[in-house]
């Protein structure tokens, strides 16, 4: 394995943010990264994640401080808007840089 990936890069791999790395959460973060804010329905439509799964992933992202949730009412209907925090943006940017570096370092 050492012939393929230097040990310093292997340690980089261990530092990958697992909150961001999970595919469903990565999709959610990518969508929220390119917009200002959106509600559950919009994120669900864009990612194809079911409501239940989305809710679970949102809780994890909120716990990590990566998204902020703003609850309000539109008429009589509850409406939850989701926004990536500055911390979330930084985490996503760092993740992208690390992944790019790791993948670029791999021999073809």
């Amino acid at each position: 394995m050492n012939d393929v990936l230097p040990s310093s890069d292997l340690s980089d791999l261990a530092e990958i943010d697992r909150i961001v790395h999970e595919p469903a959460r990565l999709m959610i973060i990518a969508v929220l990264y390119v917009i200002d804010s959106a509600d559950f329905t919009f994120v669900m439509n864009q990612t194809g994640i079911t409501w239940g799964n989305l809710s679970a992933h949102m809780s994890k992202l909120e716990e990590a401080g990566y998204i902020e949730v703003e609850k309000s009412f539109k008429g009589k209907r509850p409406n939850t808007m989701l926004r990536l925090t500055a911390q979330g943006r930084t985490a996503f940017q760092t993740y992208r840089l690390k992944m790019r570096k790791l993948l670029d370092d791999l021999p073809a």
């Binding site: 390119v34 917009i35 959106a38 509600d39 559950f40 329905t41 994120v43 439509n45 808007m81």
Partner: peptide
């Protein structure tokens, strides 16, 4: 909007 959801785009 009820079908697609609400979204606010960036700068």
């Amino acid at each position: 909007t009820p079908r697609l959801g609400r979204v606010k785009f960036g700068p």
